[in-house]
Design a protein around this nucleic acid. Structure first.
Lengths: 145, 145
DNA sequence: CCTTGCCCTCGAGTATACTCTAGCGTTTAG
DNA sequence: CTAAACGCTAGAGTATACTCGAGGGCAAGG
């Protein structure tokens, strides 16, 4: 079974434009062409594209995905290199997840303030403190102009 | 206590360029200027910039951060709007985290294959299957050219 | 045969978020 | 007082990742 670029676009939720762009960027060196020059995708191509999407979904740069694919094309001698690349990337994703969690806690704190029954009073007080701090430093505040 | 743009850059790990860019984009309408036109930051300004960094660290677009800040400047009447904006953003971050976790599992699977003592054999077999699939579909494989 | 739909490439255009340069005013240490 | 350090704006430049239009070839149904 083989697939046209349109079919692959539907299966992967990538646009045809994006697939061609990825090919141009060297992400799809494994895709064959038919006699007319049309890209012809096999199931194993789809599998590799799935991997590419995995890396893209975890925010890997195209440059690095290209490197990974290049390793895959180069054969078993690059297994160590692939492992190192994926390990480094995994660590970056874990760091990103930790960062997201930390920042989400602060957003939750804000949400809690806004949901407090006295939110209006709290905000009003904050605004007065801000203005007081500005005037204490001889600064014009957006509020008093 | 007030701070120069350089001091704020050091405290926030944003570059001076970025701070000025954020100001130009309407993210820092609360920052006052001194007689010479220099930006002069107060502690409460730093606190708001910290919030901006939180939103940025969770990949909020500048356009949406600007909206949030505009709500903050507009006073207590916008508390509901702020809550909705942050809730929607929080949901997006949670979705992103889920996506990261899912994709990380597939990366872990790849890593497991590469760490298998027979990784070389597995990869070799895969490559042969890929070539077989290509030739079965009358396609030239990168490998046989 | 020929129209409609799909495919191709090349190159330009868009969006986002910075990053930097040029030209000029301000502040401060010696 | 003056040179170095710092600040300002406007606008150009960079990086990344698409997204699209123009011009043209290929394939299948009527």
């Amino acid at each position: 079974m083989t697939y046209s670029i349109k079919e692959v676009a539907e299966k992967t939720n990538l646009s045809i434009y994006t697939l061609r762009y990825y090919d141009k960027q060297g992400l799809l060196p494994f895709v064959s062409r038919n006699a007319a020059g049309y890209r012809t995708f096999t199931d194993s191509d789809l599998s590799l594209i799935h991997t590419i999407c995995c890396l893209k979904n975890t925010d890997m740069k195209i440059k690095d995905i290209r490197q990974y694919i290049a390793y895959c094309m180069a054969g078993p001698d690059t297994i160590e290199a692939r492992k190192q690349l994926l390990r480094r990337h995994k660590q970056e994703v874990l760091d990103k997840q930790r960062k997201l969690t930390e920042n989400l806690q602060e957003i939750d704190y804000k949400l809690a303030v806004y949901s407090n029954p006295h939110a209006r009073d709290i905000i009003d007080q904050e605004r007065q403190a801000v203005t007081a701090e500005k005037t204490a430093n001889q600064l014009a505040s957006w509020a008093n102009q």
